[in-house]
């Protein structure tokens, strides 16, 4: 689904990513950890192709196509979808109209989708105008539901969300990524899982989202480098206990030894 090879990225003169390699398979959900300023958001922004992020080396291949030089909308139409953490307000554009534009003529049940994220009462409001943290998340998820991406990039689904809303957001993110699969007669969950097409790349600080979704793999981004691949739950526990300082040590260990037990 997504192959990132030796990706180097600059914002202006400052290098923010130095040599990222990352593969995400079809249907796989990948969790990205890392302290503030480590380059997580830059990675997502680069994948989406935003202007300020200049790829100086390496490439991004999505669904077999090299999209390193593709425009943002080409990537979106190819199936990359991103949930913004701080999206801008679009004055004079109601959510309903935005959803229609996103659906690009496809027949979608706007009302039904909006009800699913408890957002139907916001359809006539201008996109992001005066939305609270939780409302922004629900609006972003709703827009992604209309977009139907095959890889969802999610920047901190839990930020600015109260506990009550967290459950709703967790469930709908699962819905979005796992396509609401429940066991069916005649098919095992394993088979259904294999049929699942949507992948996810999710940034999290708190890990609350892990209570709701099945995350396959995780890794820590530190100072523009990826390190410490493990199961997301184990990474989370480790960071909770020791912080990110362990990642610094891990990066110092010569390649090849990095996978060896540290204790």
């Amino acid at each position: 689904m997504l192959h990132i090879e030796n990706l180097h990225v600059k914002i202006g003169e400052r290098e923010v990513l130095n040599g990222i390699d990352l593969h995400i398979k079809e249907g796989e959900t990948f969790i990205l950890f890392g302290p503030n300023g480590s380059g997580k958001t830059s990675l997502l922004m680069t994948l989406m192709g935003f202007g300020n992020y200049t790829v100086t080396e390496g490439k991004i291949v999505f669904k077999g196509q090299d999209i390193t030089a593709a425009t943002t909308y080409e990537r979106a139409r190819l199936g990359l979808g991103m949930s913004f953490q701080r999206p801008p307000t679009i004055h004079g554009l109601p959510v309903r109209q935005m959803l229609k534009l996103i659906a690009r003529g496809r027949d979608v049940d706007l009302e039904g989708m909006a009800r699913q994220v408890n957002f139907h009462q916001f359809l006539e409001r201008d996109v992001n105008a005066g939305f609270s943290g939780g409302e922004i998340k629900r609006s972003e998820i709703l827009q992604l539901m209309a977009q139907k991406p095959s890889l969802v990039l999610f920047d901190e689904p839990e930020s600015g969300v109260d506990l009550e809303n967290m459950a709703l957001i967790g469930r709908t993110v699962r819905e979005l990524i796992e396509n609401g699969r429940t066991p069916e007669p005649g098919h095992s969950m394993k088979e259904l899982r294999a049929r699942r097409q949507t992948s996810g790349l999710i940034i999290t600080h708190t890990g609350y989202i892990l209570d709701y979704i099945t995350a396959d793999r995780g890794q820590v981004l530190y100072n523009g480098h990826l390190c410490c691949e493990d199961s997301p739950r184990r990474i989370l526990e480790h960071i909770r206990q020791y912080g990110y300082k362990e990642c610094v040590r891990c990066l110092r260990v010569p390649a090849g030894l990095a996978d060896a037990p540290q204790e």
């Binding site: 935003f50 979106a76 801008p88 977009q147």
Partner: peptide, 28 residues
């Protein structure tokens, strides 16, 4: 704002659609 154009482009609107959507919203 470039940020607004990029936001709409990330949802699949090309640059022209994005800017005209923003202008129409601006004129409101």
């Amino acid at each position: 704002a470039q940020e607004e154009i990029e936001y709409l482009m990330a949802r699949g609107l090309d640059e022209e659609e994005a800017t005209s959507t923003i202008v129409r919203g601006f004129l409101n």
